[in-house]
Amino acid sequence: MLFTPLAPAGAYLITPEPVGDHRGLFARVFCADEFAEHGLATVYVQGSVATNPRAGTLRGMHWQVAPHAEVKLVRVTAGAIWDVVVDVRPDSATYLEHAAVELSAANRATLYVPAGFAHGYITLTDDVEITYQMSERYAPDAYRGARWDDPAFGIEWPREPTVIADRDATYPDFVR
Rank of each mutant, 00 (worst) to 15 (best):
A109K: 10
T77H: 10
Y12E: 02
A146N: 04
R28W: 14
G20A: 15
F174C: 01
E37N: 13
P172A: 12
G116T: 04
E97P: 01
V163R: 12
A118N: 09
L58Q: 06
E129Y: 00
E136I: 03
D87P: 11
W63Y: 13
D168Y: 02
A69K: 07
H119T: 04
A105E: 14
V43S: 14
P5V: 04
L103Y: 06
W82A: 13
F174V: 03
A99L: 01
D127I: 04
P90H: 09
H68G: 08
D33C: 04
A36T: 05
P151C: 09
L103E: 01
T94E: 12
H98W: 06
T57E: 12
R144E: 11
A66W: 02
R108P: 00
Y95I: 01
D149F: 02
E70A: 13
A165S: 15
F153H: 02
S92G: 06
G20D: 07
V88G: 01
Y171I: 01
L103H: 03
A142T: 06
A152L: 12
L96H: 12
V29S: 11
G20M: 07
A146K: 01
E129A: 14
A80W: 04
W82K: 02
P8E: 11
F35N: 10
G56H: 04
I81H: 03
I14D: 03
A93T: 14
A99I: 00
R137V: 12
G145R: 10
Y132I: 08
A165F: 03
P16W: 06
Y132S: 04
I130C: 06
A32C: 10
A80S: 15
A11W: 03
V175C: 12
G120T: 11
W148C: 03
D141P: 12
V43I: 14
I164A: 08
R59Q: 01
Y112A: 00
A106L: 11
E70C: 07
V86A: 11
Y171C: 12
D168L: 02
D166C: 00
E70K: 08
M134F: 14
C31L: 14
I164R: 13
A36I: 06
T110F: 00
W148H: 14
A66L: 13
L111N: 02
D91C: 07
V19A: 13
D150M: 07
N52G: 08
Y121M: 10
H68D: 15
S104I: 03
D149N: 14
R147T: 04
H62M: 04
R28Q: 15
D127T: 12
G145H: 06
G154A: 07
S48G: 15
E34Y: 09
Y12K: 03
Y112N: 05
A27T: 08
S104C: 10
E17R: 14
F3E: 00
L124Y: 05
S135F: 09
Y112I: 01
D91A: 15
V84S: 01
T170F: 10
A109S: 15
R144Y: 09
F30P: 10
V86C: 09
S135H: 10
A11S: 15
P151W: 05
W148R: 02
R147K: 12
V163N: 12
T77E: 08
R159Y: 02
W157Y: 11
E97I: 02
N107R: 05
Y95H: 15
F153M: 03
F26M: 14
A80M: 11
R159G: 10
E136A: 15
G154W: 09
P90S: 11
A50D: 12
T131I: 15
E129W: 00
K72S: 07
F153V: 05
